[in-house]
Design a protein around this nucleic acid. Structure first.
Length: 507
RNA sequence: GGCGUUAUGGUGUAACUGGUUAACACGCUGCCCUCUCAAGGCAGAGAGUCCGGGUUCGAGCCCCGGUAACGCUACCA
């Protein structure tokens, strides 16, 4: 093993990297992927890895999300040196606690003429957008408040009209540049003409910053040296460069990583692939396997010597420590890798087979057979069994992954297969948007049933069939609650996918 | 539509500064082992490197032109 630190130029500032997830839902595999890459980069260079929470979107905020992000990353062993929960010298690490900082920085931009107030209402902007689309023009802010006379601004402010602050993208008086070129460490120079860069909103009318502003201000203030993020940010990087320039700050290095993909190559999404880290934990994937699998995405691990000497399959198997020792971020492949569950499951199986019997049993007992899980399930069936031996009869679906009802079971007497599948898809949509307590689930499902003219019995029986594979089960909603949202939704999606495929083969 | 990025078997990756029949893993097929199923062992099928030109003795690697996929195009991140 080589000493990585000797490779690091000694003149460099200490490496500081970060991930900045938004607490808007379940922790995402994409967050884990980018987190892993940042973590490795920092560890290999004796740098610091920062976790920052980007909670500036109040409309999408989910209160439990932040804690779940912490739990999931820790589960994987992706540990941060600074963050909201562990503190650090550059805090606070939650953007909602930094609003005063952003306000001050916006004032700086307002004062030096690189930003301006815009007083249009959201309705006016929507109207503009629609007209532009109708005229086959690229939808873009038309800049009408770019050069508002001071008198007008004062008047609007006095009237108390709400406003946003927008970035004044050059060219304008004081800066005549018409394009921005930046270096992506993986791809080389990328150029954007400014007439393709919108006057991005920096400060929303609710006083919160947008991603673009908060991100640049925080990265600078937190001393971030390398921005390692997903490819979807390439398009907005010129805005960020312009902001660094407007503040007069040095640029970090930018590394844009390929996007994880669904099987059909689109950006990975929950509709087509489980993306919740909670799902993977609850479904019984081992953190070592998940980390290993993520390390396979995009390459980056040099071919193992074991591959040429010993068993060749060893080449694909490595630990987090192996990655710290040998992973090369600069070798990441740029094509978007498909997040292929088949290979993940094979890897997971490898890790299970390699466990000691004790470790395997321990893994079962802390996940799929944990005391808390069993205790909740037991409470559900106590009145429904006559011998303890019947426990498995009623609860098999809690422990199985291949539940699939036959058509006779899931299609109600007076319904067709088609309308049943359509309704099941609507149930899925409803469940996705509902808090995961049986108290919340019941009215949500009943409301859907009323709207679509499905009786409560038909409604719940269909769902019961999908979740349990049977027409007989412990109380459905309580069962779903214990089984967990990510796995329940995944089961419904698997059901719908399978039935859809059967449709296609029938025709 | 505009802008940007990407492109090696079905999937993930490999192929030194261009150099023999494009390699490994997953998956798939068959066989062996075996009370079953996995695991394991063995043997296969599957790409000529998105397409078209060019440079070169020689191109997956270099040049030019296309195409397709993906991303962005919000007072979301």
């Amino acid at each position: 093993m080589t000493d990585i630190k000797t490779d690091t130029p000694k003149t460099e500032a200490p490496i500081r990297v970060r991930i900045a997830p938004s607490p808007t839902g379940d922790p995402h595999v994409g967050t884990a992927y980018i987190g892993l890459l940042n973590f490795l980069y920092a560890r290999q260079r004796g740098g610091k890895f920062v976790l920052r929470i980007e909670d500036t979107d109040r409309t999408r905020f989910v209160s439990t999300s932040e804690q779940e992000i912490f739990n999931s990353l820790r589960w994987l062993g992706i540990l941060w040196d600074e963050g909201p929960d562990v503190g650090g010298p550059y805090g606070p690490y939650r953007q909602s606690e930094r609003t005063e900082i952003y306000r001050q920085h916006v004032d700086l931009l307002l004062a030096n003429g690189t930003a301006y107030r815009a007083f249009e209402t959201p309705e006016e902007l929507e109207d503009l957008r629609l007209r532009q689309i109708a005229a086959k023009l690229p939808p873009r802010y038309d800049g009408s408040h770019r050069e508002l006379p001071q008198a007008k601004i004062d008047q609007y402010l006095a009237e108390g009209r709400p406003y946003v602050v927008r970035m004044k993208v050059p060219p304008h008086t004081g800066d005549s540049t018409s394009s921005t070129t930046f270096r992506d460490e993986l791809r080389g120079n990328i150029t954007f003409e400014h007439n393709n860069v919108d006057d991005q909103v920096l400060l929303k009318s609710d006083g919160f910053p947008t991603y673009h502003l908060a991100n640049v201000v925080d990265d600078h203030l937190m001393g971030i040296t390398d921005v390692i993020r997903a490819e979807e940010w390439i398009s907005s990087t010129p805005k960020h460069i312009l902001l660094y320039k407007a503040f007069g700050w040095d640029l970090p290095r930018f590394w844009h990583m390929p996007l994880l993909r669904n099987i059909d190559k689109s950006k990975i999404s929950k509709r087509k692939n489980p993306v919740s880290l909670i799902y993977y934990r609850q479904a019984g994937f081992l953190p070592s396997a998940m980390i290993n699998f993520l390390g396979l995405m995009g390459g980056g691990m040099p071919t193992n010597e074991a591959a040429s000497t010993g068993k060749s399959s060893e080449a694909d198997i490595f630990s987090l420590d192996d990655m710290i020792a040998r992973f090369r971020l600069e070798d990441i492949r740029l094509g978007g890798p498909v997040f292929d569950l088949t290979k993940l499951k094979w890897l997971n199986g490898e890790y299970i087979r390699r466990s000691t019997p004790e470790a395997f049993y321990e893994a079962l007992r802390t996940t799929i057979l944990s005391d808390s899980y069993l205790k909740q399930i037991a409470a559900l069936v106590q009145t429904r069994v006559e011998t303890l031996g019947e426990f498995g009869n009623l609860t098999h679906f809690f422990f199985a992954d291949d539940v699939m009802p036959t058509e006779e079971i899931f299609v109600p007497k007076k319904r067709t297969r088609e309308e049943t599948l359509t309704f099941a898809a609507e149930q899925l949509t409803t469940l996705e948007a509902t808090d995961w307590t049986h108290e919340a689930l019941e009215p949500a499902l009943k409301k859907l049933g009323e709207e679509k003219q499905w009786s409560v019995k038909e409604n719940f029986m269909l769902l019961r069939a999908i979740i349990t594979g049977s027409t007989m089960s412990p109380p459905l909603l309580e069962s779903m609650e214990i089984f967990g949202k990510p796995r329940t939704l995944a089961r419904i999606r698997t059901f719908l996918d399978t039935q859809k495929k059967q449709n296609n083969t029938k025709k």
